[in-house]
Amino acid sequence: MIVKKIYGFSFAVFIAMFSFFVFNNTAIAAEMNFSVNTAIPDNQIDKSKTYFNLKMNSDQQQDIMVTLKNDTKKDITVEVGVNTAKTNSNGVVEYGKSSIKNDSSLKYDISNIVKGPSSVVIPASSSKNVAFHITMPKESFDGILLGGLTFQQKSSEVNQDKAKNGTTVQNEYSYAVAILLKETDKVVDPNLNLLQVNPGQINYRNVINAELQNDQSVLMSKVSVDAKIYSKNGKKPVYTSIKSDMQIASNSHLTYPISLNGTSMKAGDYTLKMKVTATANKQVKKWTFTKDFTIKSKQARDLNKSDVDVKANTNNSNWLYIVIGAALLIIIIILIVVIILQRKKNSNQ
């Protein structure tokens, strides 16, 4: 299955229970200058799928083929990427180039196993076959290796065409094709670890990040998180976050953000209590975590300075104080005038 994505948003292409959401290829072609089709090999596990889901042996080598079709009347350049799947903070599996670091549990990186060209020129109104060479690790492994191929027209070509057409919004589209490799049918038991809890920001808004690690070679789907943060020894949570229908890629980590909802971050000692439920290998698993952490004064101060909601609330509060102060001043003046007039009236009687 081939999926598209709009840059400017997270590179989010994801699979649920190894099945992709299906997009209409005609609609995609209308937005892009080329299309992508996969040639499914004989060792495809499920031949009804159009992404690569292959069973191979250790140290086996194999070529897989993708056909790129140019629907325009001029040559176009397509940039190609090979990436290991990672998990973004929204609980969505990413297959494109990402700033997210590889997890420490990742033993085999798809980008080292699957090799192909970095770019391809497709002649006008023509098709071109692109081969990718797979070299499986010499050491046998259980579970899956998960990654993806990405295809995007060269930015300078897209922007040049849009500039000629007078288009100012320059969204760039990309195809992604998943690659799932396995060697054995052994069921891998899923496991989650809560590695660390730290204050941070997303889109200039304060959050507390809880880093959940999937250290096994298994995809987790239907992931639900119920997170509560308490002041140290507190009985009532000061922050709460509940989210469901997420995923965590094999051997990756989910940095789960707990929003402060526009409130100022306060220094102090806290405790995170988190319940996580996920489906893996068609079985539901549950985990419970408790972790103490500290927010330092400098951390809170620096984050509050750059939080756009905190600054807006502070500015609104300042205006409110000014209005209240002015109203009180007017009332005091009125009271003084009334008292003076009353005294004058009494003295004249």
Rank of each mutant, 00 (worst) to 15 (best):
V3I: 10
K5N: 09
I6K: 07
I6P: 03
F11T: 06
I15Y: 14
F18E: 07
S19E: 11
F20Y: 11
V22Y: 13
A30D: 13
N33F: 08
S35V: 13
I40Y: 02
N43P: 00
S48G: 10
L54P: 01
M65L: 15
L68S: 04
D71G: 07
K74M: 13
V78G: 03
G81W: 03
G81E: 02
V82D: 01
S89N: 12
G96Q: 03
S99L: 03
N102T: 07
D103S: 11
S105G: 06
S105C: 07
N112G: 02
P117T: 06
S119M: 04
P123W: 10
A124Q: 12
A124S: 11
S125D: 15
S126N: 12
S126R: 09
S126M: 12
A131L: 14
S140A: 10
D142F: 03
L145W: 10
L145A: 05
L146C: 06
E157G: 10
N159P: 13
T168Q: 10
S174C: 11
Y175K: 00
A176N: 07
A176M: 12
L181I: 04
K182V: 07
T184S: 13
D189P: 01
P190Q: 00
Q196E: 14
N198P: 04
P199E: 01
G200A: 05
N203C: 06
N206W: 01
V207I: 04
A210G: 06
S217F: 02
A227L: 00
I229L: 04
I229E: 02
S231A: 08
P237A: 06
Y239V: 02
S241I: 04
S241V: 05
K243D: 14
I248F: 01
T255D: 02
T255Q: 02
Y256D: 02
I258Q: 00
S264T: 07
D269N: 15
T271W: 07
M274W: 08
M274V: 04
T277K: 07
N281V: 03
K286D: 13
K286I: 10
T288N: 15
F289Q: 00
D292W: 03
D302I: 06
D302C: 05
L303S: 03
K305I: 09
V308G: 08
V308M: 10
V308R: 11
V310R: 04
K311N: 12
N313F: 15
T314W: 12
S317F: 15
S317N: 13
W319G: 11
V323A: 09
I324Q: 05
I324G: 04
A326Q: 05
A327T: 15
I332D: 06
I332E: 05
I333L: 13
I334W: 15
V337S: 07
V337A: 07
Q342C: 09
Q342L: 13
R343S: 08
N346Q: 14
Q349K: 02
